[in-house]
Write a protein that binds this DNA or RNA. Sequence first.
DNA 1: AAGCAAGACAACCGCAGGTGT
DNA 2: CACACCTGCGGTTGTCTTGCT
Length: 267
Amino acid sequence: MGRAPCCEKEGLRRGAWSPEEDQRLVAYIRQHGHPNWRALPRQAGLLRCGKSCRLRWINYLRPDIRRGNFTADEEDLIVRLHQSLGNRWSAIAAQLPGRTDNEIKNVWHTHLKKRLEDGREAAAAGAGRQKQKACKSKPAAKRAAVAADVDSEQPSTAASPGLSSSGVTFSTATESAAAASSADNAATSAASHADQLAKDKEESFSSAEFPPIDESFWSSANVMDMDLGAMDEELGLTSSSSTRDEDMEFWFKMLLESGDMSDLSVF
DNA sequence: AAGCAAGACAACCGCAGGTGT
DNA sequence: CACACCTGCGGTTGTCTTGCT
């Protein structure tokens, strides 16, 4: 259980990613996947450490990322999940299709936490969100613009009905919620939240902001030489769901069985 | 119009755990 | 069994944007 030596920092770029770097990373992963993050930047010709590439891909460039503002349901779900899971952002993110742990963490620290601390979450649930969404509109647009840069090279698969991970991830959320419901009626509420999220996501992905995905991208000759099955698995796109989702489900059930999910009464 | 404070978000850092040799 | 390597996670920071005065 050793620790990986620190990334060589000499000659490596840091800070914000340029569109060119994004395109290069996306193009490489498109062709070869990312079996080895450490070796990826060198093979892709990027002056970045593998960690940085992974983070960029996971949090920003991954095709199944759901961009845009958090919905009221998503925010509520985050708050409730946080109450029962604590700072397990990856666990919370597993219940929010298309959202990354980093994004959820940011949202929590920037306003959800404050909302709770202020003790007026109930009152602010409506008004607060309206204000917040207005504030976020520009950054969202900015992100969309950057994404468009990348998408010009790689059509986003986010809107691909067949390839979107939403169904997979969400099915996990639904199943988890369903399991919870057997022990606690409150979980039914969580399931409805998940239902709503799925609807939101579908609507979101079919909106103009998320133009229809070019399905041909994934089946094009560009990716024919790569292991699509492996890629799908990495992206959480397989119908059998990812190992991580399975882990999350297992963890959820364990909590249920151990009674730790009594906190889910908040649902 | 300019300056300042707060908000929002991308990215980095260090650690822990899993896996292969 | 010990070690090295790799990946993933959570905390934190830096920078840019927005709103207010």
